[in-house]
Design a protein around this nucleic acid. Structure first.
Length: 230
DNA sequence: AATACGATCAACCGCCAAGTG
DNA sequence: ACACTTGGCGGTTGATCGTAT
């Protein structure tokens, strides 16, 4: 039997109040991040430590960039998703001021549908065979599937499948026969603050050398695979 | 005006890996 | 080597809002 992460019966759930936010902000300003398990009690919050961490990382951190995603951010997410699959934290790491949750939500609510409207399967970034060429390049109003329906039809993936998904998407990129439409995506010009983002992320990705290598290779834009995006 | 429906997003859940003793 | 704790991650849920009927 798995232990709960905290004593559930004494914790609040649901939306955070302004007072709770302020308590968390004040505490972290004074003591810094860390030791999420003991933080709630120390900060006077009736919350699970995990909940505090999530609230801070996703919404209260001062360096967060709120608001709509820029077009270059969208492009970058799509490209990174093609390379990394659903590794939202890695993708978000390349987008300064964005969180994994934000990127994940934006992907599920906007980008998935956008790709589908373009006739691209968002799961593997392959051209959807059921659509005609004219539909792919012409008007996009014919796509009718909703995000929730997509979700239901999407096969469940376990954590162990991540590599499969990556390789799946990657194989598409390497597959010269998968006819992607002209997305006009160019990684070279779309990376926000590349020197900072990449070098910082590089440290985090030490254990993922293979992915990182592929990613860097792709981001440098010398990889022939990315030519498929042009 | 009522309500049904879809889209969005904040938050939770469960699992996994790393760290520690 | 093992058990346990903790932090982090991705998937999923549910509340809320906007739009269509």
């Amino acid at each position: 039997m798995r232990k709960p992460c905290c004593d559930k019966q004494d914790t609040n759930k649901g939306a955070w109040s302004k007072q709770e936010d302020q308590k968390l902000i004040d505490y972290i300003r004074r003591h810094g991040e860390g030791c999420w398990r003991t933080l709630p009690q120390a900060a006077g919050l009736l919350r699970c430590g995990k909940s505090c961490r999530l609230r801070w990382i996703n919404y209260l951190r001062p360096d967060l960039k709120r608001g709509n995603f820029a077009e270059d951010e969208e492009d970058l997410i799509i490209k990174l998703h093609a390379l990394l699959g659903n590794r939202w934290s890695l993708i978000a790491g390349r987008l300064p001021g964005r969180t994994d949750n934000e990127v994940k939500n934006y992907w599920n609510s906007h980008l998935r549908r956008k790709l589908m409207n373009m006739g691209i399967d968002p799961n593997n970034h392959r051209l959807n065979q059921s659509l005609t060429r004219s539909q792919n390049l012409g008007t996009s109003g014919s796509a009718t599937s909703s995000a929730s329906k997509d979700r239901a039809s999407q096969p469940m993936k376990t954590k162990g499948d991540h590599n499969d998904q990556v390789s799946d998407a990657g194989s598409c990129l390497e597959d010269a026969t998968c006819g992607l439409p002209d997305l006009n995506l160019d990684l070279k010009i779309t990376i926000p603050s590349p020197s900072i983002a990449i070098s910082e992320e590089e440290r985090k990705l030490n254990d993922e050398s293979t992915i990182s290598r592929d990613l860097e290779c792709a981001l440098i834009s010398t990889s022939p695979t990315l030519l498929l995006f042009r």
